[in-house]
Amino acid sequence: MKFRVAILSAATALTLSACGQPALALDNPVEAPAAARKATEGYGLKTAIFAGGCFWGVEGVFSHVKGVHSAVSGYHGGTKRQASYNLVSSGITDHVEAVKVTYDPKVVRYDELLQIFFSVVADPTLKNRQGPDRGAHYDAEIVPLSKEQRTVAAAYLGQLKKSGLWKKPIVTSIEPARTFYAAEDYHQDFAAKNPRHGYIQRWDKPKIAALKKFYPKHYRAEFKRD
């Protein structure tokens, strides 16, 4: 795992990021608007893929959302041969760190997952980075797995671009679905298993707190599967 050497002022706190780079500052969450186009997905569990920087935080947030049955950290966009943490974190593959979320649309709709994602997980104005982590493998991407999800995602991104909530242009992309490869076992449920880890404390614990603050009806304190 590689770390960049950073020279910081005495007033700046430094936390080394296990997912990538030194942590310099905490991004402020923005409460995204409710989607104008609601998802209609019927009955039964559905699956979607979200990429938003280090998968520890993405998985950690969605695991605290009511209606989410599983959130699996993994790799999306590249080949099976490339799907290992050592290769992906080096930045030489076509993968992004991503999370496959399985959810009950009768409890939490896809558009609500998008709202949560853009509120407390990913900054949609950043390209090839999120938070302290740098590189194309930390890009924020939406990967719909159905026609309905793609329609809703496109409508929501269009809505966010017109909202004026962000001063910079929104650059998060909607990507075609490719094979998702689950990450190594030690990455799964990392935030829950390692609550005192420096990266989790500095970057992911605040995201979960923001989820509770902004969306109390969707928040569950227990780290478990429905």
Rank of each mutant, 00 (worst) to 15 (best):
D27R: 06
K161R: 15
R4M: 02
G42Q: 08
G91M: 08
G198M: 05
V120G: 01
V61G: 12
Y103Q: 02
A23P: 00
D27I: 00
I142S: 10
F117T: 03
G67D: 08
A83S: 14
V107M: 12
N86P: 00
T12H: 14
K127G: 00
A155Y: 09
F55N: 10
L157D: 00
L114A: 10
G74M: 05
A191Y: 15
K213M: 11
R220A: 01
F50T: 10
T93V: 13
T12N: 14
E31F: 07
I116F: 08
T47E: 15
E222R: 03
S89M: 08
L211C: 08
A192V: 04
K224D: 09
Y186W: 15
I142N: 13
K167I: 04
L87P: 00
V96S: 14
R134S: 01
C19I: 02
R196F: 03
Q188I: 13
Y199A: 02
S70M: 05
G164D: 14
W56I: 10
G74A: 08
K46Y: 05
P105E: 09
V88W: 11
P195Q: 07
T102L: 01
Q115K: 06
L211W: 03
H64L: 11
A36K: 12
V88M: 09
P216D: 02
K217Q: 13
A98C: 14
P105N: 09
I142Q: 11
R202W: 09
T79L: 08
W166H: 13
A10P: 01
A98D: 15
A155P: 06
T179S: 15
L24H: 05
V101M: 05
D94S: 14
F3P: 01
K167Y: 07
V171A: 06
A83D: 01
A140S: 15
L211Y: 05
Q188H: 10
L165Q: 07
V65D: 03
K193A: 12
K212G: 11
V72Y: 00
V120A: 03
P176R: 12
K80N: 12
S9E: 15
P105R: 01
Y181M: 13
K80I: 07
E59C: 06
L14G: 08
K100H: 02
N28G: 00
D185I: 09
T93M: 12
K127E: 13
D185E: 15
K106W: 07
T15M: 12
R134V: 02
K46V: 06
K161D: 06
Q159M: 10
L26H: 00
G135R: 01
V58N: 08
K66W: 02
A6P: 01
A177F: 08
T172M: 04
A11Q: 14
Q82L: 09
L45M: 12
I208C: 07
I116G: 05
G44N: 06
